[in-house]
Amino acid sequence: MSATTANPSAQGTRRVFLVVTLLVAASALGFIAFGNMGENLVYYWDVGQLREAGDKAIGSTIRLGGVVKEGTVDWRPDESHLEFIITDGSQEVPVECSGAPPQMFREGIGVVVEGTMTPSGTFTSERLMVKHSNEYKAPEDGMSADERKQLYRTVEDL
């Protein structure tokens, strides 16, 4: 004899457990999805939110996300010092970073910087992360990586 089913007399109890657990799970999921957790647990602030917070943002460690504004990158390798302006399209914040940025870093790309707002209005950071989009593109036809770099530089100089 081989048991294929647990004690049938406890079947009603198990079904009650099932219904209760499903209800608890569904409400937990609903709370996570539609509760205001997103407002309380923001992974990064955008430039507008940082500006809105004003002086309250100064001093505490926060993450700031946005796009590296074209033509504002100033990288001094000998000092390992990087400056650029982060923008959300309308408002801007100057950022100073120490250390070399990731290879993906370039003008026009999304970044998240972790650091503090200073009273002078500059955001200082020691942790710069590049935010890649969900777009995966093949290189332009027949162009090697070096040629693409060259093209990028050419476009940049315009």
């Binding site: 294929t4 089913t5 647990a6 049938p8 079947q11 198990r14 079904r15 457990f17 099932l18 657990t21």
Partner: peptide, 9 residues
Amino acid sequence: VGALWTGRY
């Protein structure tokens, strides 16, 4: 869900 509903191993 199947395990709780049917009790089957």
